[in-house]
Nucleic acid binder design. Sequence first.
DNA 1: GATCGAAGTATCGTTCAACAATCCAACGAT
DNA 2: ATCGTTGGATTGTTGAACGATACTTCGATC
Lengths: 232, 232
Amino acid sequence: MTATDARTARPTGRPRPLPPLPTQAERVAELLRESLIDGVYPPGQRLSEERLCEEFGVSRNTLREAFRLLVRERLLVHQMHRGVFVGLPTSEDVCDLFKARRTLELPALRGAVDPGPDAVRLVGSAVDEGEAARERRDWWRMGTANMRFHQAVAELAGSARVNEFMSQVLAETRLVFHVMDAPREFHAPYLDWNRRIHTLLASGDPAGAAEELEAYLAASERQLLTAMEERA
Amino acid sequence: MTATDARTARPTGRPRPLPPLPTQAERVAELLRESLIDGVYPPGQRLSEERLCEEFGVSRNTLREAFRLLVRERLLVHQMHRGVFVGLPTSEDVCDLFKARRTLELPALRGAVDPGPDAVRLVGSAVDEGEAARERRDWWRMGTANMRFHQAVAELAGSARVNEFMSQVLAETRLVFHVMDAPREFHAPYLDWNRRIHTLLASGDPAGAAEELEAYLAASERQLLTAMEERA
DNA sequence: GATCGAAGTATCGTTCAACAATCCAACGAT
DNA sequence: ATCGTTGGATTGTTGAACGATACTTCGATC
């Protein structure tokens, strides 16, 4: 390993600015969460308490409170006396994640016989944003938009708790992309599927939309699984 | 208030024995979780750090790590500089919880066209246990069995993540019972419904089972809501 | 040369004590 | 009765300390 790995060696002086959230622990958790989703820390890597304390400018106790939150969200895993590591999803995890997504997204779509118009609009705007980002070749924004699309689908169920669970599932799914080191344009082909799903939904055909989504999920899962097995 | 409220005043000397779990914080969280589900602490009550530190025989930092976990599970709520309080679900929370349960339980049941036989057996054993407890008038065990029944239904989906989410939702639902101070035999009438659902499921009619469960959830939700509004 | 075992080191797990920030209740002035 | 003010209590956060555990390094033995 070279002297300065851009990821592991970040003793670069001043603490990062923390977003304005209630407590320090939550601020740190939020910042770490974003970094994990963005792939700043590669899956499987150990996160040193000492280093991150300095990086965020908080004490060990506070950092550990943040760790607890992210461990519960499965973005980090905790090993006794060894520390916390970035989650390293396996093929089994991928299967489980997609099972969860099917239970959440498909019924939400099927049950949207009389959805609130703003809920559907939220789905549509995610599709629009994705397509706009694709034209700009802004792959990062495109990935985010795709995530927002599925989040909006789950929100058709109208339950805050389901929304939160869905967002956790999606965050963990992002870890999978980093495991297989997917190119940023990975999601591009799926945008057309999103468009189709939204069109069916908006035209009052939730069953058809669900059918499309089912095919989408099957294809996406298969692609992820094969990509992961190639890498192993 | 009398001199010794069995709930609020528990400065009774020695720390409680802690179950054998990986870390202290998780042990404390597990113990607290059980206490909350059992209604040891009434909803809305503030949990003093100082007192619980002594009760569990751990330091404030460790206790706070446990708090974070339970706050994320919505069993506790956290108010800045005021402390943590036992969750106090509102009518809206009840609606949300039942929306979540519909999203989880109904598709799990409907999708159980070819369920693993052990998964179905788990549902059945929960029904048996509930009925046995009812005959014994063991209301506490009956409530637990009812919870296990719905957990087993959700497990038909076959996703560990869904299972965990479901168990959180059920734990929070238990808080609702304590809010309305439901009598322990509250669940008794629902056992017959459980039996019916399991019979339909075992006889290869998941759609019928789902229909029954839908009626069950509607009835249960309505009863809870009216009971809560009476109390307010 | 490989395997196994034994110090040594680094890191985590947990506690403790301290201080600042904030809330709350009691009090007094208008 | 309403509104500041004040003082006490509790939380938020830090820093240091020490035992416990895992990893590493280094020999010793086969």
